[in-house]
Design a protein around this nucleic acid. Structure first.
Lengths: 343, 343
DNA sequence: TCGATTCATGCAAGCCTTTACATTGAACGC
DNA sequence: GCGTTCAATGTAAAGGCTTGCATGAATCGA
């Protein structure tokens, strides 16, 4: 057995007794090569254990069939379902996806985007619209089709497939208010780093305003997304005055953290305080009582995003902007406020 | 503003009035270039918005500073914490990581590994030892340092950093048995696709044998990892005879699914049936009662794996095999079996 | 002041594929 | 039997970067 440091196209061509061009064609356009030749080539390929050098291929063809997805975090399941559907759809169309995460840091996001582009991503999936305009300029200059998801905002010029975070959260807030709550707290993601979180805050405020409540009474606690953070957020908002009777959370992970903390403190949900979430992860139904939350069609969103990008990259079909519907799911953590607390 | 389709090294070199070699050096070995020149180059780089073509760079240098991680799934948080620590450690050493998932399908794993190697991964992180030996041959032939994690088995020849799944699960089973349980069921991952799941099964059997119970009485239900699957697994094992008094699960996600189902059926945990998990995810503490489970030092494991790989790739320090300790964490879901059920 | 070092830089080959274009040979129509 | 097509294959350039080697300038020691 000879020492065989990474066989190249050339090695294959020699072994098969053809030119490198033919090998390349046999691999990429099997029908543009005679049956017999193809077989000879394939045999050589397997015999040698050849696998094409990605960099070289990318350089020569100016195409990678790779799509980059830049998400804020992999640490919780928030993006998992959507991403998985995205990946599956794209795989079906012959694309591979590269995932990068940013920890919600704008500068890391920039690095990740540049890195993905340098790696030859043919297209990009981004979460939310808001980011340094320079990035969009860069992407346009590099001619990388970019699709925004997890958000829908018709006033934005870029194509997107997502939902209206503000409207979605407003609908949930409407339910909370309808239940009789007036002292509402919100445990939210960092609005400055996260336009979805920001939109959700506005959603709650919208609902309050519509109901004749003063939006400035909304007690907002901003934090990063996580179960532990939800627990700490619970402490923070429960200590503030007036004590809220309903705590809305802009993510399920925050909500279950809050619920955990409530139990630790002997505060019962929803009797003593109502809690709502956002996302409708599986998580929402393993807690008790099951979490009232906003359903988001993650899988559908991922699938459609994948399809749009695939079409754009193969047919050139331009990507449009499509809105997906969300819906408040009433389960066990939302109930009317206790009486006697009314001022 | 001229139309500037992706500036190259050459463009930069012209603008800076130096050769491409100098630009390359200015970028990669800043101290091997005169201060003034470097500044001129850097200015040109930013003016042009240059960013190096990854494929070309990889091809020329035969190095990518990229490490691939192939994990079974991103769908649940099982690998998230470990992976994040891995990524952070490696980033600190100047490496980028590429994550690919396999859905526990051996053939997908092969594809992913090949793809990562073709993409030029300088090193690889794999979960568990067990896979087609051909893969290891391939990796050796391609000269890609590979580290196994999430498992520790001194009988395996490959370097690894992980824990002994069998011993870890045995320790948990010991607690269950010590509590008085004899009718034990196990909701497990697919042992044929997952050597960790297999080892955990053996761990329970070991404990039973040690306690004088017949290991063949262990009621095993194999499924894929997921909350929903845990719920279905609960149904399955509770319907079998004899009805178990303790249900061990080889993952927390399975356990919380089982707990959810128990509540839906009005079966209380741990009064009617005990349930244990494995992993000690945050999830384990948001359910009620909090889940008795096996603590696994995910973050530590990821960090060490990252360090080992980084060392190997920079210094050439060979990667060893290191074992990490796990520990049963007794919380609320394990209690003695109800009396009267004893046959 | 002059040869020997050292430092900064340039030259050009090489990395592995794809692909436009050229070539070959066979099949075909007349 | 001959010119024409067409399918199959080959040739060679291009793609963007790194790096061994060569070169020239500056520095140093005596």
């Amino acid at each position: 057995m000879s020492n065989n440091p990474t066989p190249t196209l050339y090695d294959v061509s020699e072994k098969a007794g053809v030119s490198t061009a033919t090998v390349s064609r046999a691999l990429n356009f099997p029908d543009r090569v005679a049956e017999k030749t193809r077989k000879r080539v394939m045999d050589a390929v397997t015999a040698l254990g050849y696998s094409p050098n990605f960099g070289a291929r990318a350089m020569a063809s100016r195409r990678t069939n790779t799509i980059g997805a830049v998400i804020p975090t992999m640490a919780n399941a928030m993006f998992a379902r959507g991403l998985q559907a995205f990946e599956e759809e794209l795989r079906r169309h012959g694309f591979t996806i590269l995932v990068a995460s940013t920890s919600y840091q704008p500068n890391i996001e920039i690095d990740q985007i540049r890195s993905l582009v340098a790696r030859g991503a043919d297209g990009l999936l981004l979460i939310g619209h808001h980011r340094d305009p320079e990035i969009y300029d860069f992407l346009k200059a590099q001619d990388v089709p970019t699709l925004v998801t997890w958000a829908y905002d018709p006033s934005e010029p870029r194509p997107s497939v997502g939902f209206d975070n503000r409207v979605a959260m407003k609908a949930m807030a409407n339910e909370v208010i309808k239940m009789g709550h007036t002292k509402i707290a919100l445990i939210s993601g960092e609005s400055s780093l996260n336009d979805r979180a920001d939109a959700r805050i506005h959603g709650v405020e919208d609902a309050m305003a519509d109901a004749g409540l003063d939006p400035s009474d909304l007690n907002i606690h901003e934090t990063t997304f996580g179960i532990e953070e939800g627990a700490r957020g619970f402490d923070a908002v429960m200590m503030s005055m007036p004590r809220p009777t309903a705590i809305m959370c802009s993510a399920d992970v925050l909500a279950v953290g809050a619920m955990r903390r409530a139990r630790e403190l002997g505060i019962s949900v929803p009797e003593d305080v109502s809690i709502t979430g956002f996302d409708d992860l599986e998580l929402a139904q393993v807690v008790h009582p099951p979490l009232t939350t906003v359903f988001v069609p993650h899988a559908e969103m991922g699938r459609r995003a994948g399809l749009a990008l695939a079409r754009q990259l193969t047919d050139g079909t331009p990507m449009g902007t499509t809105e997906l519907a969300t819906q408040p799911i009433l389960r066990g953590t939302l109930a009317p406020p206790k009486d006697g607390t009314s001022d």
